[in-house]
Structure formats: structure tokens, C-alpha cells
Design a protein around this nucleic acid. Structure first.
Length: 349
DNA sequence: TTCCCGTACT
DNA sequence: AGTACGGGAA
């Protein structure tokens, strides 16, 4: 396989097929960084509107650094992997503390939330540093063209693919090349049923010639899903409700939600209500159960969540803060960042 | 239902 | 080295 031919073919393909995206053709490292954090584990179509919102609200790193975590999380709401949002704020503060934006792969790596891929992306796009990006697209393209069957989720695989990516990197124009190979993976050499018939290099592609398209890239690990049951209690009293902020670590870190009973095994709904009653320290006369929602099934990559919402009307409520509860007016609920699961329920209130 | 995608933490 | 972390599209 001639690497130069492959490089030339993908570069030519890119000039014709590249999408016009707002973070392309710019050199502002702040906007490039922002776009890359948003695009981690996220497809362009899903991330685009978030990028536009963020650039509009936070046009530069100083404005971002002075933002409040909850405001950033609110803007991030629905995008998933919420530690990215908290790391974004932390990194903005790292950057502001320094005199100028980190301007090399090595310096960029020191930023929170910036790993090997993102550091290479920013360094090449903003500064033309000749470092190869290796993202999911690059793994797929290289594995198929060159017939690399080393697992991409092993350390030897990561090393091997990085070496190949660097060997095929166009050092004269690393920025365009890195974007070209990723775009090629995102639009042409796609995971399922890639468009081989219109591919400019299918005659040279190992996977195409050896019927290995579906087998490459090879991945060994599958994350197992853990079942979890959540019983949220949505309390109402005097047009107010109770919410709390999730801890930074774990699922939906930093997001807000109704107080909940979160357990590994299903429990009868009256047991859940009894638990809620004791946690609220209320007696039988102080509340009535208005509604018990049919359990909703919510799936994350690593978790299967069965979630019940229990709506309670309180006639009396003594606020004690052993639970870090936040009492808010009902009409303020929409100002707090919440998970998709919470959002689905709230939108029907 | 299955698959996809980078970083941090342990 | 292995695993936690979300949401949407195929």
C-alpha cells in the first residue's frame, strides 16, 4: 500500500466533500478548543448547536473563565458526559492564569479535559504543529485501509495506530490533513455499510479487498450495563419544590434533580413512599400522593435505569438541610441543568 | 437493541 | 489495564 497515494486520494476527496463547519478555517485556539471538547464522543450534528450557543454566550476564554459552573452545565444540558463541561471551566481558568493560550501539543495536554487526541487537534489546527490526530474515525480508516486488526482499545493498539497515523501525516499541512482523514471517516468510511463503491481508494483498501469491512476496526471490550432503580419524589407545596445537586463524581455529575431513592433492586412503590415519608419527616396527614408515574426505562452506555416519579402534595414541610435540599419556586425549575431523564418528566409538568 | 465516540480515574 | 461516563443514530 503506497502511503503517498492514500494521502493524496484522501486529501483530494476532502477538498470536494468537506462540510462547511464554523470551526473550520479559523485559527482562534479558543474556538478550536471549545469545538473539540464539545465534539469528544459526540457527532457533529449533535454538537453543532451547542458550539454556536457557547460561542455566542462565551466569545472568548476570559468570559468562559468567569462563568458559573451551573450556567455552563445549563448550556451543556443534554449533551452528556458532563465532566467535560466542568473540565471546560477548570481549563478556562488554567488558561486565564497563564499569559497566553497554550501553544503546543505538550502544553495543551496539561489542560483539564484535553487528552492526546484533543491536544493534537488543537496543536495542528491552530498552530500547524505536525502531530497526528487519532480519533474513532482515524482508527476506522487506518484499520480498514491497512488491514490492522490490533484491538483499538488496547494499549498496544493505541501505540500502533498512533505510529501509522504519524507516518501518513502530511507534515507540510497537518491541519488540513488531520481534518481530511477524520472527515473521510465520518462521511465516507463510516462504521456501518461504508460507501465503498464511491470510495477513491477502495482498490487499495485491505478491508474492501479481503471482505473485512465489518470486522475492522477490531475492538475487544464491551462495557456491561448495570441495572439501577431510581424513585424520584417530586414534591409540591405552595408552588415550590425540592431539588438537589448531584455530586461531581458519578452519573450526571453536577446536574440537578429531585430528591431520590436510588437502589440496585426494584422495591414496591409503597416501600419507596414510606422511605420518602421518613426522609421528609412528615406524617400521614401532611401529604398526599398525587401521581405515581409508570416506570420509565432510561439507557446509558453502562447502565439500565428504571425510574419512577412519585408526585407528592405536601400540606406541611419543615425544611431541614441534612440532605442538601434546595427549595425553589416551581417556575424556576427550568433554569437548572438536568439530565435528559429529568427533562423528559419536567417538560410534562 | 446495538453501536459509536476521548478522557480521567483507579 | 480496565472501567466510568450519555445521548442519539443506525
Amino acid at each position: 500500500m503506497d502511503r503517498y497515494n492514500v494521502q493524496q486520494a484522501i486529501s483530494d476527496w476532502y477538498q470536494i466533500n468537506k462540510r462547511d463547519l464554523p470551526w473550520r478555517g479559523i485559527s482562534d485556539p479558543y474556538k478550536i478548543w471549545l469545538s473539540e471538547i464539545i465534539l469528544q464522543q459526540t457527532r457533529v450534528n449533535q454538537g453543532l448547536s451547542y458550539y454556536l450557543k457557547f460561542v455566542a454566550v462565551y466569545p472568548n476564554v476570559d468570559s468562559l473563565a468567569s462563568a458559573k459552573e451551573d450556567d455552563i452545565l445549563k448550556l451543556w444540558q443534554g449533551l452528556g458526559y458532563y465532566s467535560r463541561a466542568r473540565n471546560l471551566l477548570a481549563a478556562a481558568n488554567q488558561i486565564v492564569k497563564q499569559k497566553e493560550f497554550p501553544a503546543s501539543y505538550k502544553e495543551l495536554l496539561k489542560l483539564k479535559g484535553v487528552g492526546e487526541y484533543t491536544a493534537a487537534a488543537i496543536a495542528s489546527f491552530a498552530y500547524e504543529e505536525p502531530v497526528a490526530v487519532v480519533d474513532g474515525n482515524v482508527y476506522r480508516v487506518l484499520a480498514r485501509i491497512f488491514g490492522i486488526s490490533t484491538a483499538i482499545d488496547s494499549s498496544t493498539g493505541k501505540k500502533e495506530f498512533l505510529e501509522i497515523a504519524n507516518s501518513i501525516l502530511n507534515k507540510q499541512d497537518p491541519s488540513t490533513w488531520n481534518q481530511a482523514i477524520m472527515e473521510f471517516g465520518a462521511l465516507q468510511c463510516i462504521p456501518k455499510s461504508p460507501n465503498c463503491s464511491t470510495c477513491p481508494i477502495h482498490t487499495e483498501c485491505f478491508a474492501f479487498n479481503n471482505d473485512r469491512i465489518d470486522a475492522l476496526p477490531y475492538k475487544k471490550g464491551k462495557t456491561k450495563q448495570q441495572v439501577r432503580h431510581i424513585y424520584y419524589y417530586f414534591t409540591r407545596f405552595n408552588e415550590q419544590t425540592i431539588i438537589k445537586k448531584r455530586p461531581a463524581k458519578g452519573v450526571w455529575g453536577g446536574l440537578f434533580e429531585f430528591p431520590a431513592l436510588e437502589v440496585n433492586h426494584e422495591i414496591p412503590i409503597d416501600k419507596a413512599i414510606a422511605h420518602i415519608k421518613s426522609e421528609l419527616e412528615i406524617s400521614e396527614d401532611d401529604f398526599k400522593v398525587v401521581l405515581v408515574q409508570e416506570p420509565m426505562k432510561h439507557i446509558l452506555s453502562h447502565r439500565i435505569i428504571y425510574c419512577s416519579f412519585i408526585e407528592l402534595e405536601l400540606t406541611q414541610f419543615n425544611y431541614k438541610n441534612g440532605h442538601n435540599w434546595i427549595v425553589i419556586p416551581l417556575n424556576q425549575l427550568h433554569n437548572y441543568p438536568v439530565s435528559r431523564l429529568m427533562e423528559k418528566y419536567i417538560s410534562n409538568i
